[in-house]
């Protein structure tokens, strides 16, 4: 029916859906994402994530931002209310990469975004 057409979502709206708090770069919430990847394994993220996606993760170290930078991920949202290290936020600010944190679990976060029409990164377009 709508095959081939991907739903896009502004970070602003995604923030509402995940009831997330913005940790940095709140002035870039007009960016849009098409796909979502939920993982704590950075090598998996590097292997499968597509550019312009959101990364949902429980990891909070600066390597998350580095990984996101290499893979051209639009924004990162930490799950289970995790608070990243100050260094992580500093690095993200320098890269103008919005960071969010949600109190929801990984499962619930993925479920809500999937329901809103966002897709997984390993699905073929």
């Amino acid at each position: 029916m709508t095959k081939g057409l991907r739903n896009k979502m502004k970070l602003e709206q995604l923030k509402e859906i995940l009831q997330a708090k913005v940790l940095c770069c709140g002035d870039h919430l007009d960016r849009e994402i098409e796909m979502v990847c939920g993982s704590d394994l950075m090598s998996d993220v590097l292997a499968f994530i597509k550019a312009d996606s959101l990364l949902l993760t429980g990891l909070t170290n600066p390597q998350v931002v580095r990984t996101a930078e290499m893979a051209e991920i639009t924004a990162v949202c930490f799950v289970r209310g995790k608070q990243p290290h100050a260094e992580t936020i500093k690095l993200a600010e320098a890269r103008k990469m919005p960071l969010l944190t949600t109190g929801l679990s990984m499962f619930e976060s993925c479920g809500r975004l999937y329901r809103e029409g966002l897709h997984s990164c390993d699905e073929t377009k």
Partner: peptide
Amino acid sequence: MGFGAGMG
């Protein structure tokens, strides 16, 4: 740290 899973 999210690495070392043998995928590098």
